[in-house]
Amino acid sequence: MSRFAVESTPLAGLVTVQRQPLGDSRGFLARMFCAQDLAPVGWTWPIAQINHTHTAQRGTLRGLHFQHPPAAEAKLVSCLRGAVWDVAVDLRAGSPTLLQWFGRELSASNHWAMLIPPGFAHGFQALADDCEMLYLHSAPHAPDAEGGLDALDPRLGIAWPLPVAARSARDAEHPLLTPAFTGLPLT
Rank of each mutant, 00 (worst) to 15 (best):
V77Q: 06
P175K: 10
L98W: 11
M1L: 12
L22A: 14
L22P: 00
D24S: 13
A39G: 08
P175V: 11
D129V: 07
A72S: 15
A72Y: 00
A145G: 04
L80H: 02
F124N: 01
L156S: 08
S2N: 13
L14F: 11
E146L: 06
D37G: 08
D150S: 14
L22W: 13
Q100E: 14
A151Q: 07
Q49E: 13
G63H: 06
G157M: 10
R81S: 14
A30H: 00
P69Y: 07
Q20H: 06
I50P: 00
Q49K: 10
L127C: 04
L177Y: 03
A126K: 08
L22C: 13
T60W: 07
P163G: 07
L152A: 11
W160R: 02
T9C: 06
P175I: 10
Q100V: 02
W160E: 09
A93G: 04
G23N: 10
P46Y: 07
W112V: 01
L184I: 02
P185H: 15
L186I: 07
E7P: 00
A169T: 13
L149M: 06
L152I: 07
L80Q: 14
Q49P: 01
V77T: 07
L80N: 07
F102P: 05
G119A: 11
G59K: 12
A172H: 02
P143D: 10
P154L: 13
L149R: 02
P140N: 12
V15N: 01
A172S: 14
S138I: 07
A88Y: 02
L136R: 11
A39T: 10
A30P: 00
L156W: 09
A145E: 09
T55A: 09
